[in-house]
Design a protein around this nucleic acid. Structure first.
Lengths: 165, 165
DNA sequence: CCATATACTTGTACGCTACAACTATTGTGG
DNA sequence: CCACAATAGTTGTAGCGTACAAGTATATGG
């Protein structure tokens, strides 16, 4: 018989929390040793995938404020990993383009990370690898579905509130 | 036939990256609206699980420097969610204990997060829910295995290096 | 041509974390 | 018992990442 959904949710919560925490930690250690931050890395990764992208689109994609996005791009430009290009059609728009140097960097990081995942996969029995990947995809799908419907984080979804004093 | 492990690793990398990013974001929005930060929340959660814990153990468990841990605990104490207790045996040691107020807070957050996971699970077909959870557990296991063997992040595992200028 | 909207940048502030220097306590060899 | 090292934690300081508010430049509509 199927376990109760509540128990399942508890387990999912637990395992997912641990996994994300471990992963975040690995990211910080693993990526920063290339000389860039996690946000910078995601940004470069996005640029490598999508090509020149407007600041605003970039910000939306990375779940950042435009002002924060500006700073991240500043740092990428300062390091020579990206460049700003004013859009011809609409001169308010600032497209960000990855440089060759940035391209090289991000390729290196990517292949290292993929290598890392290969090692992780090898820890799993051959016939469950595909299951894990598929399961993760489903979870991501479910996650996004849930998010798109605008169901915040339950009862307390009243948005930002930093200080409680 | 089985897909190549390289291709699988690429897929795992991709889906996992997205998932973690989405999750992180949800955390930030979801937890901070209770008036605490993600680190504060993890700390309280740990304290709720493990009971009074020495500062150093807490730091190790959360992958933080002791000095950072001190600040987090400072903030928890300031909010009345935890208290410092000097150890009787070794007066250098500072144990941190969650308060009743903190206990209540963390219980509330936990049940909200579990509720959230329940919703996510409901997006999945009934008979794949268990598969997903099990798969995640396996992945976490593999991840930890890999980490415990001290295999850093591949070739560039030379530790910290923040500034490249 | 002016008012408003849009896209982005800059000013400012705050939280999180790390490293280094410091304090307090405990353990150890003589 | 004392000097000295080791351990546990705190404080000083600094940098990154992010957000909000205000400012700048461009576009759009009346």
């Amino acid at each position: 018989m199927a376990p109760s959904i509540h128990r399942q949710a508890e387990r999912l919560h637990h395992v997912f929390t641990e996994l994300v925490r471990a992963y975040q930690f690995r990211d910080r250690e693993g990526i920063t040793c290339y000389g860039l931050s996690v946000s910078q890395c995601y940004t470069l990764d996005t640029l490598a995938d999508k090509g020149p992208t407007a600041m605003g689109d970039l910000a939306r994609h990375l779940h950042l404020e435009i002002s924060s996005m500006t700073r991240v791009v500043d740092s990428l430009v300062a390091k020579g990993w990206a460049a700003r290009v004013t859009d011809d059609k609409d001169r308010r728009v600032c497209r960000v383009r990855i440089s060759r140097k940035g391209q090289t960097l991000v390729s290196g990081i990517r292949s290292d990370l993929i290598e890392e995942h290969k090692h992780i996969l090898r820890e799993l029995p051959v016939d469950s690898r595909e299951v894990v990947i598929t399961a993760m995809s489903h979870l991501l799908f479910a996650f996004n579905e849930r998010k798109q419907r605008g169901c915040g984080s339950g009862k307390s979804g009243k948005g930002r509130k930093r200080k409680v004093g």
